[in-house]
Amino acid sequence: MRGGERAADACPAGGGVTLPVEAANLGSNGVEDIDLQIQSLIALSQAGDRAAYGQLLALMAPRLRAYFNRRLQDPADAEDLVQETLIAIHTKRETYNPALPFAPWVYGIARYKLIDHFRRRGVRRHVPLEEAGEILAESDTEAGATRADLNRLLARLPARQRGLLEDVRLRGLTIAEAAPRHGYSEGAAKVALHRTLKSLSASVAADED
């Protein structure tokens, strides 16, 4: 990818930052509070810590890769877009307001790059606006979800429904396993889960307005 090569030429190899293992392998401990980690990396980077900045970009790369891979056929295209998006994150980093959540900002950039990609190809494709937190939740290393954003939404649910949803959707239990833990029959759990997801997506939609 041309833009990437230019950036690399300006900074000869060898002097790159070394990425601590925690950052690269975040996926292995899915409970990591990634939002908090991102915020602290940004704060460090604002204080001039370039390694922290590199870690942040390295943290984003697998998530962007998963995002684009899911939406494009060709992994090479997806990798180009990962690089373009990383470059855009870099060149547009001034526009990020640290008082706001990071996920919607990254998601906005990735989505813009995806639309741009379709436009260049002459493809007319609608790219729906999704919950921005998805971009942090998605990762080809199956990393932790965007806990802060997600928790905010989940907090609006009644405790029982919330517990059920977390067990099924986040911890990966089957409905049959999860239902008795929250006092549901299997059939009732299915209905409750369906309603919960509906009300969640309604409240996300309300947030979008």
């Binding site: 900074c11 990425l19 900045y53 990383l86 526009t95 640290p98």
Partner: peptide, 23 residues
């Protein structure tokens, strides 16, 4: 080029600026 090299290159430059710089 490899994405890791790109990241290493980008991280040679200063990271996020302080708040409200754009404004």
């Amino acid at each position: 080029m490899k994405t890791e090299d790109l990241i290493a290159g980008l991280a040679m430059e200063p990271g996020f600026p302080g708040p409200r710089r754009m404004e």
